[in-house]
Design a protein around this nucleic acid. Structure first.
Lengths: 234, 234
DNA sequence: TGACTTTGACTGACTAGTCAGTCAAAATTC
DNA sequence: GAATTTTGACTGACTAGTCAGTCAAAGTCA
């Protein structure tokens, strides 16, 4: 229930504008809303993205009203059209805007130390913290929901997240096999198996948590025991 | 791509009518479209359900037009309202109509013979045949997509399918543990792990098959090897 | 059995309402 | 005070739901 919001460090929309004078970013006091045009524009854009994300997650693409997004963002409807071409491309950009920083964070990640199991476990608990109990989790559901109607979104998501994730997991699995931590050689052919419970956890939380809460953390642990063998006493 | 349609054996909508005189059902020839009112009504209802399912799966709830459903069903829009109260309750009934026969089939199923592994494997391949490559697979995605906006649907689905499925799987896992086929005792606490790859397969097929086809059959086999140990040579 | 009457399933034009997208005017910035 | 940004009233396309009217099938009568 207590979803952490996603911090959206939105770059200004289309800043041929801002690149004019000298260093245009960051005025003296950021305390009150900063009074540099580019900055304010970026703030508004961020507010719109935040609001849109919220609405799209809650209602899906078709049922979301731009009026509601505008109201939530504290902005007039016309303003939205200063930042986005139309509803559809707003949705598509939205997904990119939210996902890109995650991918970047993942790319900058693994200093490959310790056992593969520890690595995967760190990954998993990070995933739970950063995704499963965040708006981002709902975003995953949103993509599953709207993907078929937005091939561009599905493509992007596949390319940026899924294929990389699968590749990364495969590398990890192969390492695990090489080191003898993982017995099942075939697992490398289906890294999906490794992440399946995590995905299920995300979906479960947003659909059935109310009926039967799921201890995702513990479930993932059990799953890892299955793959790596019962946990040795450290 | 080659989805099997779902056969919808729709009961007549509301046949106080038909119960008046003597046995009113079933005329001589059903070859040409039957000419008994109740029968025709049932046919039309079935056509509407079939068409609605198709449209809702393709476009989601909000973006689906009743005009399109009517056209696809070969029926006037008004006719839909003779069978369903409104769009929303049509959607909710739809899910029930399609899911109930599946549940019934499952209930009438397991003659518990052979090893647990064989049982589960039969289950899995049945699932692939009956769900993953059927409209029903898309229906699962549809429920994931619309669930949060249709608590009634999510509730129904949880009650009729998910909770029963989980319970059934748990029973199977416990049997497997008792018989020594399954080592991981904790698995019984999270039957979700057992079905996770199957769910992932369904979602994968409808979102990413185009990018990277997935041999679901083989993936499930590998997953079962993980749980039951590598397959002994039969 | 055939003529006449009643029924109610079905139709589709219509209404009332919604919402994406526009743009002239107001506000803000420099 | 000119240029730029923001606003929100407005338009027009679209659609859920309605309902007066139609007509094949069922019922009735002689």
């Amino acid at each position: 229930m207590t979803k952490k919001p996603i911090d959206i460090s939105a770059p200004p929309p289309d800043i041929r504008t801002a690149a004019k004078g000298q260093a245009p970013i960051a005025g003296g006091d950021v305390v009150a809303s900063a009074s540099n045009r580019a900055v304010r524009a970026a703030e508004r854009r961020a507010a719109i993205v935040e609001a849109a994300l919220e609405e799209f997650i809650a209602r899906g693409f078709a049922a979301t009203r731009l009026d509601d997004i505008a109201k939530r963002a504290g902005v007039a409807k016309g303003t939205i059209y200063l930042h986005f071409k139309d509803k559809e491309s707003m949705f598509e950009e939205l997904v990119r805007i939210v996902i890109v920083p995650v991918v970047e964070k993942l790319n900058a990640l693994p200093p490959p130390t310790g056992s593969v199991r520890d690595l995967v476990e760190a990954f998993a608990s990070n995933f739970l913290k950063e995704v499963a109990n965040t708006r981002r989790g709902d975003l995953v559901r949103l993509i599953v929901a709207e993907g078929p109607r937005f091939p561009a979104v599905a493509d992007f998501y596949y390319r940026e997240v899924v294929s990389r994730g699968i590749a990364g997991m495969r590398a990890l699995i192969e390492l695990g096999i090489a080191r003898g931590e993982i017995q099942q050689k075939n697992l490398a052919r289906f890294p999906q198996i490794l992440v399946a419970p995590a995905m299920i956890a995300v979906i479960w939380q947003s659909l059935f948590a109310r009926h039967a809460p799921l201890d995702a953390q513990e479930m993932l642990r059990v799953h890892l025991d299955l793959i790596f063998g019962e946990r040795r006493t450290t």
